[in-house]
């Protein structure tokens, strides 16, 4: 079963093709561009590129797995709008995965903090024990993140010091980890899911307090 994985929850735009079999996962092709302001321009060409690299066409896809964030909203929505529209056009299911979980899973054994940049001097974060989420996802100032972990990963952990070693090779969610988390759903042909972003923050909007006088 050929699965397309997409994630735009961090400065990276990631598109990957993963073959899911009864007993394993095989990476077919993966493309990643790191540019926090270019998800809208980079992602679609990356999808075209991984398909071309594999000599496959969109109709060969069985399912799409997308990172639901948390992440900066504008970029995050690019991945989810792309995944949802492709799923609809192809008539194939879409599955959502918490983007932090992909990093937590990839970090392997031990207690791990995953932190990504939430801008405004805050991080999106969650903690994992042996790859399984124990707390979060949440958003907070780095100083307010209470950690009882052995190590950390994610570009938020590189940007802010949490007092534990940083797995510097694990900064962005990989396609393989995203698909691994959804593999059971893919194999079972589970019903398609609506891809709702993990926003964690409400929109900034203030109700007007009433009319300001113009006469002074």
């Amino acid at each position: 079963m050929l699965v397309l994985a997409l994630d735009t929850a961090t400065p990276a735009s990631t598109a990957a093709l993963i073959e899911v079999t009864a007993d394993g996962l095989f990476g077919v092709a993966e493309s990643r561009t790191v540019d926090p302001r270019a998800h809208g321009e980079k992602l679609a060409p990356e999808i075209a590129a991984v398909l071309a690299e594999a000599g496959l066409r969109p109709r060969d896809l069985t399912a799409i797995v997308a990172g639901l964030g948390p992440g900066p909203f504008t970029g995050l929505r690019v991945g989810l709008a792309t995944a949802a529209s492709m799923g609809q056009a192809l008539g194939i299911p879409t599955y959502g995965v918490c983007s932090l979980d992909a990093l937590g899973r990839a970090a392997g054994p031990g207690r791990v903090l995953i932190a990504t940049d939430a801008r405004r001097r805050e991080v999106y974060y969650a903690t994992y024990a042996d790859g399984v989420r124990e707390s979060g996802p949440d958003v907070a100032k780095p100083a307010d993140v209470a950690v009882n972990v052995d190590k950390s990963a994610g570009e938020g952990a590189l940007k802010y010091d949490f007092g534990v070693p940083v797995e510097e090779h694990l900064l962005y969610p990989s396609g393989a980890a995203l698909v691994a988390i959804a593999a059971d759903r893919v194999r079972a042909g589970a019903p398609s899911e609506i891809l709702t972003p993990l926003y964690l923050r409400r929109p900034d909007a203030v109700e007007p307090a009433g009319r300001k006088p113009v006469l002074t």
Binding site: A44, T74, R77, A81, T82, A89
Partner: peptide, 12 residues
């Protein structure tokens, strides 16, 4: 950006 991303998904 939402519309453009979706349009690309449909086109792709």
């Amino acid at each position: 950006l939402v519309g453009v991303a979706a349009a690309k998904g449909y086109a792709l």
